[in-house]
């Protein structure tokens, strides 16, 4: 197992995602002899996990069962331990395309946070790219580095514990893309530019507040960035439902031209319908995404 490469079988030391039910999953570090408690009972790693195929059903001792899934950045995003606010898949997908990430891309990111985006970046730039991620919070930086190792992507990433606004990314002239998710991105725009290749590249900033966006856009324009564009993207989840819609009964219709025996056939009392509903309440805002192109210098 690695977050950038599939394997078929669960092995000792893997991180697996246990699927407990709809919208209920948890990550498990697979260790010889270890056990994991779930609401359906205990999972014994040695007998239930190791050597089993990813995607297998595991029956727990209380009679319930779970599926064990191969980790992906998307599953990790919904199961990871939160140390900060995180970016979710809808924004991540947009960022990945708009930053034009692909195998071989060199990317700078700050802050690392809980590593939700970092894993998605790593997946997209492997096997030949590199991620330079900067986090000013020491414990978070250390924890992220530890996770990258556990997820077997550490060779693709360098974690730096420093303040990007003061000290930059620790690299110059190497990045194809830069991503900023910090409180004052406008202070890091200059560092972003310095980190990027002279052939140019793409930059992106995520900010929840429009005032941050204003200042960031101004800084980007001042630094000569082009194609500055801000957008917002929201996910809508459609819940599939089967409906029984009762039909109204207006009584017999004397004006309707019917055969005598047609009167016997009553209209149906209800109609079955497959449709979808939107949740009563849903995420209405995550953050504004600003993108820009650094021209060749």
């Amino acid at each position: 197992m690695s977050f950038v490469e599939y394997s078929d079988l669960i092995q000792n030391g893997d991180v697996a995602i246990v699927y407990l039910g709809h919208d209920s999953m948890m990550p498990v570090k697979v260790q010889q002899g270890a056990q994991t408690q779930t609401r359906y009972g205990v999972i014994r790693h040695s007998s239930d996990l190791i050597g089993q195929r990813y995607g297998s059903k595991v029956t727990c001792n209380k009679g319930g069962w779970v599926y064990v899934l191969h980790p992906t950045p998307e599953l990790w995003t919904v199961t990871l331990p939160h140390r900060t606010q995180i970016l979710y898949t809808t924004d991540i997908a947009t960022i990945t395309m708009m930053l034009e990430l692909k195998p071989g891309s060199v990317v700078c990111e700050s802050g690392t946070g809980s590593g939700s985006l970092s894993h998605a970046i790593l997946r997209s730039i492997a096997p030949s790219g590199h991620l330079h991620t900067v986090e000013f919070h020491q414990q978070r930086a250390e924890k992220a580095a530890e996770e990258f190792k556990e997820h077997r992507v550490d060779r693709l990433v360098t974690v730096r514990n420093q303040d990007v606004c003061k000290d930059g990314f620790g690299v110059t002239g190497v990045a194809d893309a830069v991503f900023l998710d910090i409180p004052s991105p406008w202070e890091a725009v200059g560092h972003a530019k310095a980190a990027m290749k002279r052939q140019g590249g793409r930059v992106s900033s995520f900010s929840p507040c429009i005032e941050q966006v204003q200042r960031t856009c101004e800084a980007l324009a001042d630094q000569g960035f082009e194609e500055i564009s801000t957008l917002e993207v929201l996910l809508r989840v459609h819940d599939v439902r089967t409906l029984y819609l009762p039909m109204p009964d207006f009584g017999p219709d004397p004006s309707a031209q019917t055969w005598p025996d047609a009167a016997e056939i009553k209209p149906p009392a209800s109609v079955v319908l497959k449709t979808t509903t939107l949740p009563r309440e849903t995420q209405g805002h995550t953050g504004y995404l600003t993108f820009a192109t650094k021209p060749r210098t």
């Binding site: 599926y67 856009c217 500055i228 801000t230 957008l231 917002e232 809508r236 979808t276």
Partner: peptide, 29 residues
């Protein structure tokens, strides 16, 4: 896609089924 969803639920062999779309808005800044 509703039909696909229904069929997959019926047959089993899949989890985390989700039917989604997105809303995308650009800004003048």
């Amino acid at each position: 896609l509703i039909e696909c969803y229904t069929k997959l639920k019926e047959l089993g062999g899949t989890v985390n089924l989700r039917l989604t779309d997105t809303w995308l808005r650009h800004y003048q800044v």
